[in-house]
Simulated scan of single mutants.
Amino acid sequence: MQAKTTTALPNVNLTIIGFVAFTFVAYVAIGLSLAVLPVFIHQQLGFSTIVAGIVISLQYITTFLCRMFAGNIVDKQGPKPAVTVGMASFTISGVLFIVACLFKDTPLLSLGILILTRLVTGVGEGFVGSSPINWALFATSDKHTAKAISFNGIASYGGIAVGAPLGVIISNSIGISAIGILITALALFGFIYARSKAAFKGTSKDARQGFLQVLKKVSPYGICMGLGGLGFGTISTFITLYYIYLKWDGAVLCLSAFSMMFILGRVVFSKAIDKYGGLRTSIICLSVETIGLLILWHAPVPHLAVVGAGITGLGFSLVFPALGVEAVKLVPVSNKGTALSGYSLFIDMSLGLTGPLVGGVASQFGLNYIFPFALAMVLVALGMAVVFWRRSVAETAAAL
Rank of each mutant, 00 (worst) to 15 (best):
G126M: 03
I133W: 10
R280E: 12
I283P: 03
M68I: 08
I61F: 12
S150G: 13
T290G: 04
P79M: 05
P10N: 11
G46N: 10
V99D: 02
L114W: 06
D105H: 06
L314H: 09
L109M: 11
V74E: 09
F371A: 00
S93I: 02
N152D: 13
V331R: 02
S256Q: 06
G308K: 13
T91V: 08
G78W: 13
Q209V: 11
G190Y: 12
S236G: 01
L182H: 10
G126W: 03
G175V: 06
L264M: 13
D249C: 00
R280W: 08
S256N: 03
R391Y: 04
S171T: 04
T117V: 02
K217F: 05
I98S: 02
S177W: 15
L230N: 00
Q364A: 11
P107W: 09
G233V: 02
L111C: 04
T234I: 14
F200W: 12
Y276R: 05
I113C: 03
L345T: 09
T281K: 04
I50L: 10
T63H: 07
A148E: 08
L253D: 01
K275A: 07
W248T: 02
G46P: 04
M225I: 03
L96N: 04
D206M: 05
P300M: 11
E125R: 01
L246R: 15
F211H: 08
S259N: 09
L58Y: 13
T184D: 04
S344Y: 14
M1H: 14
S141P: 09
R67A: 03
L45A: 03
K104P: 00
L340A: 01
L318Y: 07
P300L: 08
V331H: 05
S177Q: 14
E395G: 10
I160A: 12
F24W: 12
S130N: 05
T281D: 09
A8H: 14
L293A: 00
G86T: 07
F97R: 06
S350V: 04
I92W: 12
Y193E: 09
K143P: 01
V306M: 10
A305T: 09
V162C: 03
M225Q: 12
A161G: 15
A161P: 02
G126T: 09
L230D: 00
A21Y: 14
L382F: 15
S236E: 10
G163N: 13
I170A: 08
A194P: 11
N368Q: 14
M68A: 10
V25A: 01
I244F: 02
V252I: 07
F64W: 15
V83I: 15
A397I: 09
S282K: 12
N368E: 15
R391G: 01
M261I: 03
S270L: 00
G53T: 11
A164W: 01
